[in-house]
Amino acid sequence: MAVIGSGVLRGMVVTLRTFAETYLWGRAVLRALRVPPVDGLVTIQYPDEKQQHAERFRYFPFLVYDQTPDNLRCVACKICEQECPPACIHITMAKDAQGRPLKAHGRTFPAQFDIDVSICMSCRICVDVCPFEAIEMDNEYELSGGDRVQEMLFTKARLLKSDGYFHQIRPEEARVVDQRLAAKKAPAATTPRPPA
């Protein structure tokens, strides 16, 4: 015959075990009773402690430059602007007074590259579609500001970060990106020599 309240009591054993697991003395008691451990305290006290994120954690994009900020990979092709689902990117190519594109390091470059933080969905589609590996995802997320337009719109200067930074935050992905860039730069080296 089942005791009335046995279900509730069984549940209380579970909660008591979790409670004991939270404290050192409790863990000693559980070890003595040979009870397998459960997770005790799992709360991360933000902002004093910060969660360790995986390498792929993404929040907001940034523009990559090699060596110096004026050597950015972006050529202002506007593909990311077209494909962005919420349309939060705004790019204008640098042009001279007659409307002809200007060049630096042999490539066209953007005069203006603005991304709106409050509209961006962190979906990563801009990174997936860029043919020049010029835009990548950053993992900083403490970006709150006080002003809707001044602080929530990131301009080109604020978005530019070095390739070294990219390697630092995403070593695996940076390695793959470097391989892709090297493969694009040296197609002649891979064609086999004709037989003598």
Partner: peptide, 25 residues
């Protein structure tokens, strides 16, 4: 909270694979 404690472990797996805990894409 017991349920969410287990859920967090799976969300950490999602973050490791896709980059985001909930909006995975």
């Amino acid at each position: 909270l017991y349920a969410f404690r287990e859920r967090e472990k799976i969300l950490d797996l999602f973050e490791a694979a896709s980059g985001s805990r909930m909006m995975c894409n």
